Simulated assay, not measured.
Amino acid sequence: MRPAAKAVSLAGVVLVIAIAARLPLSQDRQTARDVDRITNALCIVAPATPYDPSSGRAMLAPKSIPADARCPVCGMYPARFPRWAAQIVFKDGASHYVDSPVDLFVFLQNTDRNARRYALKDIALSYVTDFETGQWVESHHAFFVLGSTALGPMRVADLPAFSSRKRAETFARSRGGKVLTFTQVSPELIQSLSHNVRHRH
């Protein structure tokens, strides 16, 4: 093949590749514009894990987090973050698992958005993990540390939880922060900490 014909042939191949590469980009841009036009609050959330009577656990007791359970707030896998994990147990014994105390508060503040079949009135109990011992603690009795150097599962500030004020204060002295009770964690505080308040599932 002559050099001139080779050059024309090569230019044709390059043109075809350039056009083919451009098409998906145009479609991706269109898709991105279409997503921005969506104004409804449609969220796809994994269902709560049903209560298993054969587990031998009391219906409202905290449960081990299944490895495949997804956080209904952010989509992460709470079992991968055992020191941070929390769970919501509904009156029928079903549970939702979340990856951190902040996401627990997001869930509680907007249950209808984060749970398919449940409302706030359907929640029996919620639990957080004691950051130090790994034991489950009923969240209304836990103490949370705001502003410590500990980063949560999303590698941002979170609220490490503790079963006693003494443990929380010891942690705050060594890692910084201020101890709060459950009722002191306000919606405004959670909004400032959460990247999931306006999360699209």
Rank of each mutant, 00 (worst) to 15 (best):
R83S: 10
H199V: 00
R80E: 13
I123W: 01
A67R: 15
D99V: 12
L151C: 03
G12W: 03
H201G: 11
R117I: 00
A48V: 10
P153Q: 14
K63C: 00
I38F: 15
T181K: 13
W84T: 05
G134L: 00
A119M: 08
A161F: 06
L189Y: 05
D92K: 03
S9C: 12
M1W: 13
M154H: 14
E188A: 11
T149H: 11
A32M: 10
I190L: 11
R200H: 05
K166I: 13
T31A: 06
Y97Q: 01
F105T: 14
K121S: 00
Y51M: 15
D28K: 05
V89Y: 00
A79M: 09
V8T: 08
L159Y: 00
Y51V: 04
L108R: 05
R57P: 01
I44M: 07
S194W: 01
A7D: 09
D92Q: 06
T49Q: 04
A7P: 00
A119P: 00
S100I: 00
H141Y: 12
A119C: 06
V145G: 01
I17F: 08
P78W: 13
L42H: 13
A48T: 03
L146V: 00
A157K: 14
A119F: 04
P53V: 08
V45K: 03
S95V: 10
S9E: 03
F90K: 02
E132G: 12
V45Q: 03
F81S: 11
T133P: 06
T31E: 04
A32N: 15
R37H: 09
R198K: 09
R198T: 13
H199G: 03
H201V: 01
P72Y: 10
I65D: 01
A48G: 07
A86Q: 09
C71G: 02
I44T: 14
A41I: 08
S9A: 15
R33S: 06
V16L: 14
W84V: 02
Q135T: 00
I17M: 12
G134V: 08
D158C: 04
A124L: 06
V185Y: 01
P50R: 07
H195E: 14
V8L: 15
K121G: 00
I38M: 10
S194C: 12
G56N: 13
L23E: 04
V106L: 02
V137F: 07
T111G: 13
A115S: 15
V98Y: 08
L104S: 07
A168H: 09
S95Y: 11
V35D: 15
I17C: 14
G152R: 02
L125T: 06
I38Q: 14
P153T: 02
V13C: 13
M1N: 11
D92I: 10
L120D: 02
T39N: 15
S192G: 05
R116I: 12
D52M: 09
Y118P: 05
F107M: 12
R200V: 02
A124N: 07
